[in-house]
């Protein structure tokens, strides 16, 4: 028998629906605010489980995942009905969706999990559905960023946290062996470092790298023990990548851009 939802759950869900994604510490605060009038304080994850049980018939879910940008945990409200880009079809025209798919291709093929605006603009010439002008491409990219499908930093586009959480299954189906999971946290890895040993080649998220090698002076690949040839990024705030609720993260959302750009 499912635990029924209360006003608190509905309130939490409504707020999640507004933004689509929320950082863990903010979700904690929201959870507290929502439950103010209640004596029973469930753990956040249990609280969300109650909502998820009710959301399941609607093929929706609040799912947790790590951001590749700041290494923090986020909750995202995702749609599982069609984990296909077609679910964006009500908002985007066919050629805009094709552009998004091509952008995903570029990101998957890239070494660092980003696609430059120049490359995206170039591939827009080969759109099969309907050609796009340069201005239109820029406009679509802006919308994709606004709608939280892509992130943009200095002309480079990466998949947003919500996009990865929501589309994980789709991406794995479409790209199969082309995408790799992070050796540390086992989620899809795009913005990452990889082992240069040809027999190994594992990928590790930048925030996971930072966490894993934190106290290592002589970093070695966690899989093959080969020398780890990359600069170890530093993240201002660290949150536990796998462990769940109990630890509270009160650090403000940091901007991690400097550290992750250093590596080339």
């Amino acid at each position: 028998m499912a635990i029924p939802m209360t006003e608190s759950h509905r309130r939490f869900l409504q707020t999640m629906m507004n933004g689509g994604i929320m950082e863990f510490s903010k979700a904690k605060i929201l959870h507290r605010n929502c439950c103010e009038d209640q004596s029973a304080h469930a753990q956040l994850d249990e609280f969300i489980d109650v909502i998820n049980t009710q959301l399941q018939p609607m093929f929706m879910q609040i799912r947790k995942g790590m951001s590749e940008d700041d290494g923090l945990q986020y909750y995202a409200l995702v749609n599982m009905a069609e984990t296909d880009v077609t679910r964006m079809s009500s908002d985007y025209a066919d050629n805009e969706l094709e552009l998004f798919r091509k952008t995903m291709d570029l990101i998957v093929d890239s070494e660092n999990g980003t696609a430059s605006s120049t490359d995206i603009l170039n591939c827009a010439d080969s759109l099969q559905t309907k050609k796009m002008k340069k201005k239109e491409v820029e406009h679509v990219l802006n919308r994709l960023v606004q709608d939280k499908w892509l992130n943009e930093k200095r002309g480079d586009y990466a998949m947003s946290t919500r996009c990865i959480i929501e589309m994980e299954q789709y991406i794995r189906n479409v790209y199969q062996d082309l995408v790799k999971s992070c050796y540390i946290c086992h989620s899809l890895a795009f913005q990452s470092q990889s082992c240069e040993n040809p027999g190994c080649g594992i990928k590790v998220h930048l925030p996971c790298v930072a966490r894993y090698f934190k106290s290592h002076t002589d970093p070695q690949c966690p899989a093959c023990k080969d020398y780890w040839p990359h600069e170890i990024p530093v993240f201002p705030a660290q949150s536990p990548s796998q462990s769940t609720s109990s630890k509270e993260n009160t650090a403000p959302t940091p901007s991690a851009s400097h550290s992750r750009r250093k590596r080339k």
Binding site: E7, R10, R11, Q14, T15, N18, G19, M22, K26, I29, L30, N33, C34, E36
Partner: peptide
């Protein structure tokens, strides 16, 4: 729903 009092998160 009644709004959440003092909620800044949403």
């Amino acid at each position: 729903l009644e709004p959440i009092f003092g909620d800044q998160v949403g």
